[in-house]
Amino acid sequence: MWESVAASVAGMMVAMAAAAPTPPVAAAVDATPVLTSTPFGALPEQSVTHTVTISGRGTLTATRVTFTTTADLDGVIAQAEPGRCAASPRVVVCDLGDLLLGAAAAAPRVTITGRIRPGVPPGTVIRNRVSVTSVESTATGPRVASNAYLLPGSMATATATAADPALESPAVASAVRPPGRSLRVPAVAAAVIGAIAAAVLLTRRRLRRRHDLPLRPAVTTRHRDPM
């Protein structure tokens, strides 16, 4: 009796498992961010526009775009289509919500404008980076795009150039040039001339001493006249 009951229960469980709907397999999402900076290589006090577009296929859930830069931007304005943004001089965060990527849908877009703050020193590397995250990217990691450029000039090079005597005027360069063979000959000549002058001066002093000595009186020997 118990065996028949167990067999019937097992049969019911198998039937229920077969009737249960199979969860759909999530389609793979292909999302690629593209970052464009115009003009590329913007200088301090120059306006620049960064545009981020997301292309691909699939659905992104709770999509967030994060833009960062290594040079402060003044007057930052950020707009997302769709979504909204929060901006600061170096970081812009935009929440775009759920996105459907595909040929029929317009590519989501984020536009960031501003002016590079004056005072950025020459030789600074300005790096712009954008990352796209969503629920689907939890396992795969964020999708990233970036660009970078070097501001013209270099403070280290400028300092070295100003301190290099070879690049200064000839008069200054000759004044700071280290002594070499060309300066040894005048030094030897000066030493010889000094020695000759000292010898002449010593000879003059000796002659003066001889002339200043008192003259000895002449000695006369008198003899008696025998007469």
Rank of each mutant, 00 (worst) to 15 (best):
Thr53Tyr: 14
Thr53Gln: 15
Ile54Glu: 00
Ser55Val: 14
Arg57Tyr: 14
Gly58Ser: 13
Thr59Ala: 15
Leu60Met: 14
Thr61Gly: 11
Thr61Asp: 11
Thr63His: 02
Thr63Met: 10
Thr66Tyr: 03
Thr68Leu: 09
Thr68Ile: 07
Thr68Phe: 01
Thr70Asp: 06
Thr70Tyr: 02
Ala71Ser: 03
Ala71Cys: 07
Leu73Glu: 02
Leu73Phe: 03
Leu73Arg: 04
Asp74Leu: 08
Ala78Val: 02
Ala78Arg: 04
Ala78Ser: 01
Gln79Phe: 04
Gln79His: 06
Ala80Ser: 00
Ala80His: 05
Arg84Met: 12
Cys85Gln: 04
Ala86Thr: 11
Ala87Ile: 04
Pro89Val: 05
Val92Ser: 03
Val93Pro: 09
Cys94Asp: 01
Ala107Ser: 07
Arg115Asn: 06
Ile116Asp: 05
Pro118Gln: 06
Gly123Asn: 04
Asn128Thr: 12
Arg129Phe: 13
Arg129Tyr: 12
Val130Ile: 12
Val132Arg: 08
Ser134Gln: 07
Ala139Ile: 09
Thr140Gly: 10
Pro142Lys: 02
Val144Glu: 10
Ala148Tyr: 05
Ala148Val: 04
Leu151Thr: 05
Gly153Gln: 03
Ser154Glu: 05
Ala158Pro: 14
Ala158Arg: 14
Thr159Lys: 15
Ala160Ile: 13
Ala160Phe: 15
Ala160Lys: 15
Ala160Leu: 15
Ala160Asp: 15
Thr161Leu: 15
Ala162Asn: 13
Ala163Gly: 13
Asp164Asn: 11
Asp164Pro: 08
Pro165Arg: 01
Leu167Asn: 06
Ala171Phe: 02
Ala175Gln: 06
Arg177Pro: 00
Arg177Gln: 09
Pro178Asp: 07
Gly180Ile: 01
Gly180Lys: 04
Arg184Leu: 15
Val185Asn: 11
Val185Leu: 12
Val185Tyr: 12
Pro186Thr: 04
Ala187Arg: 14
